[in-house]
Simulated assay, not measured.
Amino acid sequence: MNFNQMDYQLFHAMNEWGRTASFLNPVMRLLANDAFYLFFIGLLVYWFIRNENNRKMVAESVIAACAGLTISWILGHLFYRDRPFVSHTVLQLIDHPANASFPSDHALGAFVIAAAIAMYRKKDGMIWLILAALIAFSRVWTGVHYPTDVLAGALIGILVAAGVHWAISHSFTLSRWLQACIQFYEKYETKIWPQHSKNEPRATAQEKRL
């Protein structure tokens, strides 16, 4: 049995759980289709907490995600692989175009953001990594990816996030450039949404009337 056959056998076993444990299918559809948006919501929440480390974390996440998805696009063209439902009869639980299957963009995107968060916030990062793993698992369960597609996506995502974090942490130029970009944004943000220091005394009712 060659590697592709082993990959298909594992896919088939996982995909068949959609029949034997069909009560979980609504959860798997939700994870496969919509759970990824939680990462975008999470990044927005972290960003607008307006903490310096959070903003560096979010910026690194976006940079790493862009780099990771670029790598995925290149690999998808160099090593094109049909989706499972194109080559085999599968239990397909969600709609999906018949484009490149390898690597999984959903798995890559989820893991690259989760890993980037884990570099700064370990406890939060563990929760995000678990969610990323569930998304990757659901993509196989629902019949749109092979196991190696999501494993490759997860591995690329983690490595890219770690690489971007290492590069920014060890390069004075990159670190200053990132900080300058954040400060440029904050310069205009504070004009629309002023940030008050916790130690700044609040105006009294009489002062407000004046």
Rank of each mutant, 00 (worst) to 15 (best):
T70P: 04
C181M: 01
G163P: 03
W177S: 01
N53T: 12
F85E: 01
A98W: 09
V86F: 03
A136D: 06
I113P: 02
P97D: 01
T142S: 07
I127T: 03
H77R: 14
V58C: 03
Q179W: 02
T142C: 15
G76L: 04
A132Q: 06
H170S: 13
L151W: 10
N99R: 10
V58D: 05
V144P: 00
R176S: 11
A114D: 06
L91M: 11
K56Q: 11
G68E: 09
L78F: 05
I127M: 09
I127C: 11
A67E: 04
A167W: 05
A167D: 02
F102S: 09
A136I: 11
G76A: 04
F111V: 02
W73H: 12
I130C: 11
R50D: 10
L174A: 14
S72V: 15
V62I: 15
N54H: 13
L178C: 10
Y46I: 00
L178N: 02
A152Y: 13
H106P: 09
H77I: 06
I63H: 05
N51G: 03
C66R: 03
Y146M: 10
P103K: 07
G153P: 12
W128F: 12
I168G: 04
I63F: 09
Y46C: 10
P84Y: 12
C66D: 10
V164G: 08
S171R: 14
I113K: 10
L91K: 12
R176G: 02
I156C: 11
T70L: 12
M119V: 05
R176P: 00
I117W: 01
L129E: 00
V144K: 08
I94L: 06
A154M: 13
A154W: 12
S87Q: 12
W141E: 08
L75G: 00
Y120S: 11
F172K: 15
F48S: 01
D82K: 14
W73P: 00
P97K: 02
V150I: 15
A167C: 13
R50H: 08
S171I: 11
I168E: 01
F48A: 08
V164Y: 01
A115D: 03
L43P: 08
A162T: 06
R121Q: 02
R50C: 03
I130R: 02
A132H: 03
D149A: 14
N99A: 10
A133M: 08
A132I: 05
A100N: 13
H165F: 15
I130F: 04
Y185M: 06
I127L: 08
T142W: 05
E186K: 00
L93F: 06
E60V: 10
M119K: 13
V112A: 01
E60L: 09
L69I: 12
I156W: 09
A59E: 01
V164S: 13
T148E: 03
L134S: 06
I130M: 03
V150T: 15
I168F: 15
K56F: 15
I168Q: 06
A162E: 12
S101M: 00
Q92C: 10
A116C: 07
H106Q: 11
R139F: 10
K56C: 09
S72I: 11
N53K: 14
K56V: 10
D149I: 10
P147C: 14
S138H: 12
A64T: 15
I71W: 03
A161M: 08
R50T: 05
A133I: 13
N99L: 13
N53H: 11
W47E: 07
L108W: 05
Y120N: 08
L44K: 06
K56R: 14
D149W: 14
